[in-house]
């Protein structure tokens, strides 16, 4: 996967979890929580979706890496880059 594909994959997950949010306005550098109505259960959902869609385990100590879009891509790209994107 490319960086852009990783970013899109994260966006897809968030839009499934929070369908009412307008994700087009996302600012990659800002905390997701400050922009959208996301709580700790939503972050748990993101972790579960990453496991389901990409067989990727995010250990609890790394949850903080998912704080913004930019930090998520930074963290996930090296772990997903060898993944083929299956549609």
């Amino acid at each position: 996967m490319t960086r852009e594909q990783v970013r899109q994959a994260i966006l897809n997950i968030i839009s499934d979890i929070a369908p009412d949010e307008d994700l087009a306005s996302i600012k990659d550098e800002e905390k997701l929580r400050d922009q959208f109505d996301l709580d700790s259960m939503d972050f748990l959902d993101i972790v579960m979706e990453l496991r389901k869609r990409f067989n990727l385990e995010v250990p609890e100590k790394d949850y903080q890496e998912l704080v913004s879009m930019a930090s998520s891509v930074e963290y996930l790209f090296p772990r997903l880059k060898d993944n083929e994107l299956v549609s």
Partner: peptide, 17 residues
């Protein structure tokens, strides 16, 4: 779910990272 993934037979087509 995490536990079930960890004990699952490795599935080559899903092997990543």
């Amino acid at each position: 779910d995490k536990f079930l993934h960890s004990v699952r037979e490795p599935q080559p087509e899903l092997e990543t990272v």
